[in-house]
Write a protein that binds this DNA or RNA. Sequence first.
DNA 1: CAATGACTTACTGTTTACAATCTACAGAGA
DNA 2: TCTCTGTAGATTGTAAACAGTAAGTCATTG
Lengths: 226, 226
Amino acid sequence: MIPDDVVSPLPSQRGLGDLVTDVLREMITGGKFQPGQHLKETELADALKVSRGPIRQALTRLEEEGHVEIRRHRGAFISTLTKTDVEEVHTLRGAIEKLAASRACTRMQGVGFAEMDAVLEQMKSVDTKIDPEDAVRLDLQFHDIIYAYCDHARVLRVWESIRGQVTVFLRARNASFPDFLDVGYSEHKELRDALALGDPQAAQDGIDKHILGAYERLKRLNLPDR
Amino acid sequence: MIPDDVVSPLPSQRGLGDLVTDVLREMITGGKFQPGQHLKETELADALKVSRGPIRQALTRLEEEGHVEIRRHRGAFISTLTKTDVEEVHTLRGAIEKLAASRACTRMQGVGFAEMDAVLEQMKSVDTKIDPEDAVRLDLQFHDIIYAYCDHARVLRVWESIRGQVTVFLRARNASFPDFLDVGYSEHKELRDALALGDPQAAQDGIDKHILGAYERLKRLNLPDR
DNA sequence: CAATGACTTACTGTTTACAATCTACAGAGA
DNA sequence: TCTCTGTAGATTGTAAACAGTAAGTCATTG
């Protein structure tokens, strides 16, 4: 028997549609398109050297993630970020991450917390480097661990469906409040310690506080109401 | 200017893919397929007189709703219901419905509660008729009202993604515990009264109790672990 | 001058055809 | 008899062609 660790990475076991989804998501969250911009299937297909099939698949996925809006016979348009979006994403995230954390805190054991500590260690060093992109990546990595250990496929799927928008928010936060990079470590360290208690209720309270803090900061951003 | 209330419902503004999704979902939740059955795109396309495009779209949607499992180059297979599925759906539903209820209870005003009371009234009459299918429909209708008034597009989307499986559970419950048809009214009436307090915390507690009760009953079903 | 209606254009929704990939089974070798 | 390998068959992934629809434009009419 060959151990799982050495199975060939299989260059691409995922379909083209999934690849295109990732590429477009990265372009959108990276700000390559203007809000409201019309994404035409044929243009995207030509640009990415694939046919319209995978493009359509990707666009429907991205619609579910809130990155684009699809209007029948009109096409896909880049969503404009509104106060409503910020509120919805944060309240929904709070709801599912509380559930995720209450389950994860009793399942992470030593190995899960070791992963968290590794991320926290990097967060500390970010304070000196101050690369906003690293801060975003580490923030997401930290929370990914919670979702990974909650052992709940459906919660994980919901998280994946809002993760991209959370990325957008984090980048916007770093752009508007560059000083936040300094407090990232302490806030996540606090959350880690709450989880380490192994008490589901304490874990939920920790998440509540954490998400609420993130929401309060973002509310200061000047966004259209809807 | 014509008020929004009277705009024509637009007979069928939805695409073929959406229609196929609904048809297949109804067939699956209605038990037309055996668990594990292999759904072949070409067969479905021939049977429904459409091409494979809309079929593919429908199958990916149904995968997201947990009704089928898609394995690359193998096709779509009807999901077998497991204890894990029951647990995941109920815990996730609890999380989002608490959020939905806490928002809805302050937004339903008179009109929302009137809708609920109309459903409750029918539930009472069901007790005499005892048509299990009506019981399922009314149960869903009741909760749909909560989601409709919570004014949260993303929560609504998550609900829609698990609503089909909840339907399956309700039907299974009615099949295994036919006597439950009698308590459906009182349980929902209790929940309605909790929402009517207009207190978000009370609303959440009401949902917690309601969902937990549903979960406890379903746990008695004899299902495979995974 | 405003409003309506036909026409044009460009896009998406759908169908059809082709290519890549996987599974299953049979046969050869140990 | 068991295992491995090669081939055949079937099914999905992908591409391209076709058809239908909505928005925009411009002429026409009240």
